[in-house]
Structures are given as structure tokens and as C-alpha cells.
């Protein structure tokens, strides 16, 4: 039951790379899974490694209110799962899992952990002979074996194929249910599936924080909206939508409670107004729809179809179980409660 806070403000310099500044505050309540979501190069792995104590930094890291900034990694009591597993190649799976046990007071039994994660039969094998999914389960077992106060996970599913990723993601949801965790990923699907709280990171800074609902439904910037998979519509390029909004949602347009009309969003700034809406919120073919759009492309995706549509100078995506034909006109409906100014 550990509450973790980290307030990192440091510029890091790697060999041959430009200096990179991380200025980010992270607060994770006990047993909460906090996902740091961001594109490659946003600094999320650096942030995680700094919390782990791998890099010297300015700022403060605390666990249950106790400052641990000066503690080396081995004295922080954390567990870490790496994207590329980082299993010790000269040890067996069992030796890997019990690696940290001698340093902790009440470690977990390696065989029991391997069994829980479904890889008990691999105990005597060497890591180079394992598949990616097997390696990551072993790496997860190694981190859990030391009964970490905080689990740090650096894109643990990124190197896995889709079925393995889905299977391990389901296991992770269970495993992380009763441990404080910081989970770094660029995958929004994973983030939404496992996060209690999401921090969106860009260029070394946290640009939005909140529940998955907050971040996915109410992105605070076009960058966050695009990265979380929403359509971002520049209203200056979409006069037909803008007219509809003028007519119908004027008093309550802004879902953050400001009461400001999205079409007036640029009245006090020079930037163009944008609204975000998730693809699954757009309805196709409603006779009372807001506007008409042209179907540009239809892509089959598992149980649905992703439809790319254009109207005015705008391109949006929507999902449809029964997709319209390409190059036909179809009406689009934008539920007002799902439109969000950003």
C-alpha cells in the first residue's frame, strides 16, 4: 500500500544526443495504476527510469511521504518490467525469477509465481530459448517476486504480437490490481484497458492528467485528442458543422463547463477553434443527421468497419457495422455531449 509521488525536473544528456529536459510531476495513489501515455521520444521511459533511480536528477521522489530521491535503485523496493525483458541470459528462468529474493525479507516463491503466470514448465529453460510472451511473463514474475512496493513497467507489451499482447494485458490487469504501478506506453488501447489514471506526456512534460474517461473523452488539446484516437475537427475548415453548432449548442457547447460556444473559441485567441469527437461517437446514416459527407475508404476491423469520410475540408473517421459504399454520400450525426472543444 504505497503512495508514490515524483516531481522530476532535470535535463538529461546522452552520448551523441541533444539534451532532453523532463519536467513532470507524477502522483500515484496506493494500489492505483497510473499510465504515462505519450508518443515515442516524449520522455516517458526517461521519467520511469528516473523514478526507479537509474539516473541522477533534480526534484523529489517520495514513497508514502518519505523522500527516496537519494536512495540507489536497490534500496527503493521497486520492481521493474522492461520492454525488451532484460532477462539475465546466463541464468535459467527460475534463477532469473529468484534473482532479487536474497535481498528482500519476504520474497515470493519463484515456482509459485511462474505457475500463476502460466509458465511453470519453463523454470529450467534459458531465456534465449523463450518466445517474447514467455520472456515477458518471466520478467513480470521476477519483478513480482521481490514483493515490490511499486511496480514500474516500461512498454511491456510493445514487442509482442497481437494475440500474446492481449493475453498478457488481461493478466496484467489482474496482477496490477493490488499494487501501486506506473505503466509507460504509447498504446492508447492498453492505456485505456489498464489505467486508473492517465498522464499524457509530450516533449518531457505532462500535458494532461485525469481518468481514462477524462483523457479520451475530453482531451485538452488537439495533440492529446489525436494521440488518443479522437477526430480533431478544425471548425474554420468545416463551415457546415460550424453552422450546425451555431444553431444548436450555443449555450452549452463547451463540455468543460465554461459555457463558451466552441465557434467563438478563437474570439480571444489567434488559434483556430477545434472540436474533438471519438470515432465511435459519430453516427452514420441518420436521416436527421447534422451534415452530409463522402465515404472515402472503408477498412474492415475485427467486428466493425472503420470508415473514412470527408466533408468541407475535413476528414473524419467513424465506425459502422454495416459500412456504406465508397464514394457515396452519407449523413453524419455528432452527438452534442460527445463533442469537446480543445
Amino acid at each position: 500500500m504505497t503512495r508514490l509521488t515524483a516531481d522530476i525536473r532535470s535535463t538529461f544528456t546522452a552520448d551523441g544526443a541533444e539534451p532532453f529536459t523532463v519536467d513532470a510531476a507524477v502522483e500515484v495513489e496506493a494500489n492505483e495504476t497510473c499510465v504515462v501515455l505519450g508518443p515515442s521520444g516524449s520522455g516517458k521511459t526517461l521519467l520511469l527510469e528516473t523514478i526507479a533511480g537509474f539516473h541522477e536528477h533534480t526534484g523529489e521522489v517520495t514513497a508514502n511521504g518519505t523522500g527516496i530521491t537519494e536512495r540507489p535503485p536497490e534500496e527503493r523496493g521497486f520492481g521493474f518490467v522492461f520492454q525488451d525483458y532484460a532477462l539475465f541470459p546466463h541464468m535459467t528462468v527460475r534463477e532469473n525469477v529468484r534473482y532479487g529474493n536474497r535481498y528482500r525479507d519476504s520474497p515470493r516463491d519463484p515456482d509459485e509465481l511462474l505457475s500463476e503466470l502460466g509458465v511453470a514448465d519453463l523454470a529450467a529453460r534459458n531465456p534465449p530459448t523463450l518466445s517474447g510472451g514467455e520472456k515477458q511473463r518471466v520478467a513480470l514474475a521476477r519483478a513480482l517476486a521481490v514483493r515490490p512496493s511499486v511496480m514500474l513497467l516500461d512498454e511491456p507489451l510493445a514487442a509482442l504480437d497481437v494475440p500474446t499482447r492481449q493475453s498478457l494485458r488481461d493478466d496484467l490487469v489482474d496482477v496490477l490490481a493490488d499494487v501501486t504501478a506506473v505503466y509507460v506506453t504509447h498504446n492508447r488501447t492498453t492505456a485505456r484497458a489498464i489505467a486508473d489514471r492517465i498522464l499524457v506526456m509530450q516533449d518531457g512534460q505532462i500535458v494532461q492528467r485525469g481518468t481514462p474517461e477524462d483523457v479520451f473523452e475530453r482531451p485538452e488539446s488537439p495533440m492529446v485528442a489525436r494521440f488518443t484516437g479522437s477526430n480533431v475537427i478544425d471548425l474554420s475548415a468545416a463551415p457546415s458543422l460550424r453552422r450546425t453548432l451555431d444553431d444548436e449548442i450555443e449555450p452549452r457547447a463547451r463540455s468543460d463547463g465554461s459555457g463558451r460556444n466552441p465557434v467563438d473559441h478563437d474570439s480571444d485567441t489567434d488559434t483556430a477553434p477545434h472540436v474533438a469527437i471519438r470515432p465511435e461517437a459519430i453516427t452514420l446514416g441518420d436521416p436527421d443527421g447534422d451534415l452530409s459527407a463522402t465515404v472515402e475508404r472503408v477498412v474492415r476491423e475485427d467486428a466493425t468497419n472503420r470508415v473514412t469520410l470527408t466533408f468541407d475540408d475535413v476528414t473524419v473517421e467513424a465506425f459502422a457495422a454495416s459500412p456504406p459504399a465508397v464514394d457515396t454520400e452519407v449523413t453524419l450525426s455528432f452527438p452534442r455531449g460527445r463533442l469537446h472543444v480543445c
Partner: peptide, 27 residues
């Protein structure tokens, strides 16, 4: 040697000496 192997050793409890003895040195 991937420096993440040293990270993995350190974060799971081994100090620098132990990390050298058990991971870096053997590899």
C-alpha cells in the same frame, strides 16, 4: 552488455558490487 541488465539487477535489490559479481562479470 545491455545496460538494462544492470538496471534489472539493481532495481531488484543487488548493489553495484553484487551486480558486477552476478551479472556484468559473468557476461
Amino acid at each position: 552488455i545491455d545496460n538494462r541488465l544492470e538496471y534489472a539487477s539493481r532495481i531488484h535489490g543487488a548493489n553495484e558490487w553484487e551486480t558486477f559479481r552476478r551479472v556484468t562479470g559473468p557476461l
